[in-house]
């Protein structure tokens, strides 16, 4: 049985991770004119310029960041969606089905996203 005490704690933890990593994303991608980080935008210019994307892609730390943020966002979002759906008071069987579908969707998206992060990192290092 899925225990809400456990899920809620992970929900909070995922929220904290999102706060930090999304903050990092905002800093790198949108506050580049204010927070000057030469290490993540070495070519200067816009953060999504090819040379900058390539530089970040070569960094294993960034690949890990993507995977952690993806996992945290998926868990936080899908658990929140599960709560909203449960408040519609579905039958017990339907609740199990909702939990199973969300779990499969979450794992599926995480696998695809992780593969994409690793593949881009591998590709960038080869270039």
């Amino acid at each position: 049985m899925m225990r809400d005490q456990k899920l809620w704690t992970w929900h909070l933890a995922a929220g904290a991770v999102i706060l930090v990593f999304l903050g990092l994303h905002m800093t790198v991608m949108h506050l580049d004119k204010i927070v000057l980080l030469a290490s993540v935008n070495p070519a200067g210019g816009h953060p999504i310029d090819w040379q900058n994307v390539l530089a970040r892609g070569k960094s294993a730390a960034f690949a890990v960041t993507y995977v952690v943020l993806l996992g945290a966002a998926l868990f936080h979002g899908l658990y929140g969606l599960r709560n909203i759906l449960f408040e519609l008071d579905p039958a017990r069987g339907l609740k199990r089905a909702i939990s199973a579908v969300l779990l499969i969707v979450g794992i599926g998206l995480f696998v695809v996203g992780t593969w994409a992060a690793i593949a881009s990192h591998t590709l960038a290092k080869a270039m």
Binding site: M1, R3, D4, Q5, K6, L7, W8, N83, F86, E87
Partner: peptide
């Protein structure tokens, strides 16, 4: 009490 509180009847909703 945690037997009940940790599950769906608990404060989570």
């Amino acid at each position: 009490r945690r037997e009940v509180l940790a599950g769906e009847a608990g404060p989570w909703r």
